[in-house]
Design a protein around this nucleic acid. Structure first.
Length: 379
DNA sequence: AAACCGGGGGC
DNA sequence: GCCCCAGGTTT
C-alpha cells in the first residue's frame, strides 16, 4: 500500500516547517514567555500591522499595562494614547472591553476554550486560534494573510483568498497540518515563513525549507499566488482644517476637539475641520479657493457657536485610510473677536478644548493631525 | 458579500 | 503609486 501523494506532501511540510521554525525563529518580545495576556496583546496589535511597527508599541503597552487588571482599570484615554499612531483604534477599545470581561467572567484568567476565547470582543477566528495555539498549545489553526499565501502556493490553491469560503478551506487544511503537540510552534512557523521567505513579492524560494514539494513553485506560479480580488480605491474627500490660535486667556493655546464615540477615529482628538464643497464634475482637481475654504470652515464652527476670524493658508496635507482619502487644506485662524471683549471668550461645546502643546501628551491624535501640528510648531 | 475601520513600509 | 500587512465587526 502506497502513501498517497497529497498525504506525503502534507507530512513533509509539517515536519520540515516545524524544524525550520525552531532553528530560525526571530527573538520577538512576545516570544519570551507564554503569558497569555502578552500573546493576546501582541496578536491584536499585529492585526494588519507589521512586526517592526508593533515592537515599540508592545514594549510601551506592557510596561504601562503589565497585567489584565492594570488594563481593565485604566482610563480609556490612556489606552488610546498608548495606541496613538497604530491605527484601527477599535482594536484598543475592544481589547480593553474584552480584558474587563475576562476579569468579570473568568476571574482575570484568559480563557482557554475555543468558545470562550472566540466570544471575546475583538477576537475573531485568526486571533482565537493564535491565542489557543501559542499560549496554550492547543491544535487550533491560526490562518492570517501569511498562512493563506504560504498554503495557496505550496498546495497550488487558486481560490480567491478574499472569499470567506476560501478561509474556511485553509483553516481545515492548516489544522490537518499541525504536528502532534507542536501547535504553537507550527502556527508561528507558518507565519514566520510567510514573513521571511514566502513573501508577497519575489519569494526567496531557494532558501525555503519546503521548496522541494511546493506545487506553486513547481508550476512556476509562486508569484501569481495567492489569487486576490483587487480592493476598491478609497473615495476622495476634500477637507478644510483650522488651526485656531487663542487670544486673551487662551493665548498660546490651540483649539482641538474630540471625535464622536462611534465611527472613524472614534474618540480621538483633532483640529476642527469640515468637508469642503465638492469640486465640479468637470474640474475635480481644481484647487479650492481660499474664500470657499473659509466660508465652509466658518459655517461648520458657527454650528458649534464659535466665530471664525480671518484665516491664512498654512499647508496642504493628505491622508489615506483604507476606504477614504482626505485631501486637506490647513488654515491658521483666530477666533472672531468676542462681543464681550477678548477676556470673555464665548462658551464652547464640551467636546472642544483649548490646549497647550504639552497637553497633547495626554490626548490621542490621529497621525495626520500630529504631522500638521509638528509642521506648524517647527516653522 | 461588501463596507467600514489606520497607518506605514517595501518596491 | 500600488500592495498588503500575525483581521474584526457591522450591515
Amino acid at each position: 500500500m502506497t502513501i498517497d501523494r497529497l498525504t506525503e506532501q502534507k507530512s513533509y511540510f509539517s515536519a520540515e516547517l516545524l524544524a525550520w521554525y525552531r532553528r530560525h525563529k526571530r527573538d520577538l518580545p512576545w516570544r519570551r514567555n507564554r503569558n497569555p495576556y502578552h500573546i493576546w496583546v501582541s496578536e491584536i496589535m499585529l492585526q494588519q500591522t507589521r512586526v517592526d511597527t508593533v515592537i515599540p508599541y508592545f514594549h510601551r503597552f506592557i510596561e504601562k499595562f503589565p497585567t489584565t487588571e492594570a488594563l481593565a482599570e485604566a482610563p480609556e484615554e490612556e489606552v488610546l494614547k498608548a495606541w496613538e499612531g497604530l491605527g484601527y483604534y477599535s482594536r484598543a477599545r475592544n481589547l480593553q472591553t474584552a480584558v474587563r470581561e475576562v476579569h468579570e467572567r473568568y476571574g482575570g484568567v484568559v480563557p482557554s476554550t475555543k468558545e470562550e476565547v472566540f466570544s471575546l470582543r475583538g477576537v475573531g477566528p485568526y486571533t482565537a486560534g493564535a491565542i489557543l495555539s501559542i499560549a496554550y498549545n492547543q491544535p487550533e489553526p491560526a490562518v492570517d494573510g501569511n498562512v493563506m499565501r504560504v498554503l495557496s502556493r505550496y498546495f497550488l490553491i487558486e481560490e480567491d483568498i478574499m472569499k470567506g469560503s476560501t478561509r474556511v478551506t485553509m483553516e481545515k487544511l492548516a489544522q490537518e497540518l499541525i504536528p502532534e503537540g507542536a501547535a504553537g510552534d507550527f502556527n508561528q512557523g507558518l507565519m514566520e515563513l510567510g514573513a521571511l521567505v514566502c513573501t508577497p513579492k519575489s519569494p526567496n524560494c531557494l532558501t525555503c525549507p519546503v521548496m522541494a514539494h511546493c506545487a506553486g513553485r513547481a508550476a512556476g506560479m509562486e508569484e501569481a499566488l495567492p489569487v486576490k480580488k483587487k480592493a476598491k480605491p478609497p473615495r476622495p474627500e476634500r477637507r478644510v482644517v483650522s488651526l485656531i490660535l487663542g487670544d486673551g486667556p487662551n493665548a498660546g493655546r490651540i483649539l482641538v476637539r474630540q471625535r464622536p464615540a462611534e465611527g472613524l477615529l472614534a474618540r480621538l482628538w483633532e483640529l476642527p475641520h469640515t468637508e469642503a464643497p465638492k469640486a465640479g464634475e468637470n474640474a475635480p482637481e481644481a484647487p479650492l479657493a481660499a474664500a470657499a475654504a473659509h466660508e465652509a470652515l466658518a459655517a461648520a464652527l458657527a454650528a458649534d457657536g464659535l466665530g471664525l476670524g480671518p484665516a491664512a493658508w498654512l499647508m496642504h496635507a493628505e491622508h489615506t485610510f483604507s476606504h477614504i482619502r482626505w485631501d486637506m487644506e490647513v488654515y491658521v485662524c483666530r477666533p472672531e473677536p468676542s462681543p464681550l471683549g477678548a477676556d470673555v471668550p464665548p462658551l464652547l461645546p464640551s467636546h472642544y478644548r483649548w490646549i497647550r502643546r504639552e497637553d497633547m501628551d495626554q490626548l490621542a491624535f490621529p497621525n495626520v493631525f500630529l504631522r500638521i501640528l509638528d509642521t506648524y510648531f517647527e516653522s
